[in-house]
């Protein structure tokens, strides 16, 4: 988007590591540029193995990635939810049945037994 112009990081590449292994620097996938993200909004990412991630930029400029599949409905829609924060931790609220998921650890805030995957992200 044209609005974020001040920081040189705006055109920085956003990368995501699909596997949850301990290392593997070669496994980072470049998904978009930072200025392709809108604060408070998510986008969906198609991973090499066919699964999907939901990528969010919070209003302080941090990028988060969790699984895009809503475990309650099976639909790949978490990237389209509204974000918020509770106790200083950002979350996304599923657009289907409104369950909230912590963006940092994937925990469902409305049902302790449910968790979605979390992906490491970085900007380069």
């Amino acid at each position: 988007m044209s609005t974020v112009t001040e920081a040189p990081a705006a055109t920085a590449q956003v990368q995501l590591r699909p596997g949850d292994g301990e290392d593997g620097p070669a496994d980072w996938v470049t998904v978009c540029t930072l200025d392709g993200l809108l604060p408070g909004r998510g986008v969906a990412v198609l991973l090499p193995d066919g699964t999907q991630a939901a990528l969010f930029l919070d209003h302080e400029g941090r990028v988060h990635a969790i699984g895009n599949r809503d475990p309650f409905t099976g639909a790949a829609v978490l990237s389209r939810g509204l974000t918020g924060s509770a106790g200083g931790r950002p979350y996304v609220c599923s657009p289907l049945l409104k369950q909230r998921f912590d963006l940092a650890d994937g925990r469902c805030l409305d049902d302790e037994s449910v968790r979605v995957p979390v992906y490491a992200v970085r900007t380069v």
Binding site: R41, G74, A75, V77, R80, G81, L82, T83, P95, L96
Partner: peptide, 22 residues
Amino acid sequence: DGEQAALQDTNDHFLANLQKNG
């Protein structure tokens, strides 16, 4: 427009009605 885009429910965001399978 601008910040408003981030405030809208997905329906308003895509100007269409989200159904159960996405």
